[in-house]
Amino acid sequence: MKPAPFTYHRPETRGEVDALLAELGSEAKILAGGQSLIPILNMRLSSPAHLIDLNHLHDETAGPALDDGHVTVGPLVRQSSVERSELVTERVPLLAETMDFVAHPAIRNRGTVVGSIAHADPAAELPAVLAVLRGEVVARSATGRRTIPAGECFRGPLENSLEDTEWLEEVRWPVAAADQGFAFEEFARRSGDYALCGVAARAERAGDTTTVALGYLGMGDVPVCTELPPLGASAFETDEVEDAVARVVEGQLDPVDDIHATVAFRTHLARRLGATAVRRAAAKADTAGQDS
């Protein structure tokens, strides 16, 4: 349970990180909070030859910031700082609601938001939330920067769409609009453990019609995002919501059996949690619309 030997690099600027990655490529892994990477190293599931420690970068922001319709987080922003951020509570309420479900407080004190996105664990909350919010990430390398929409970030389990010489310098969370409502639901064996199933919902109200997008975690190789057919006001008086969610669960999710839950149980959770999330998000979109 000890990591294999590696060469440790401690760059002081983002440019130095670019240069190291340009030289080392796939031989190197980025170390920020380490709360997903170090367990993997301890168990020797991975033994990269080089680790690039971001923790001593100069002039990095410690908390979220507001930028052009987005709340942005840099590479050293800890999850606990996002959890305590008033800016996030006011502007990205879905992220604020979800932080409580991300691991345990002691893990959130070290773990970073950008790291969780880069790690691309299909059972993690933040990738699914970023996807359902249609957020984006900024990747950089020695040759420049590019912005990647959340939908194109995740390629497979623990696999993001970055090149070997790129790293994530920012995650951008869209500020919520007045007519939107959100909800996050998950079921885990123990508070803070990986969820057996989880779902984030984004609802938008236009007249009598509500459009809801769902982002599931733990139900496929990547976060699964889908939009329900528009729901009229009467849908919420009947089982139409449950039926619409059931069709999505049946057609688009691909859960697997493991020691913790069967496919049947996970499917049941996806239907129940999905419907609850749709109803809660839609109710909040209603209230939001009336307020404005």
């Binding site: 349970m1 440790y8 709360q35 170090i38 301890n42 345990h104 002691a106 893990i107 070290r110």
Partner: peptide, 23 residues
């Protein structure tokens, strides 16, 4: 030694953290 049990929790700069998940 992979962050699950919490036995190794110490304060780093005043905040609880896993000493087994920190070099």
């Amino acid at each position: 030694e992979h962050g699950v049990c919490g036995c190794c929790t110490v304060l780093i700069d005043g905040e609880p953290a896993r000493s087994c998940l920190t070099f």
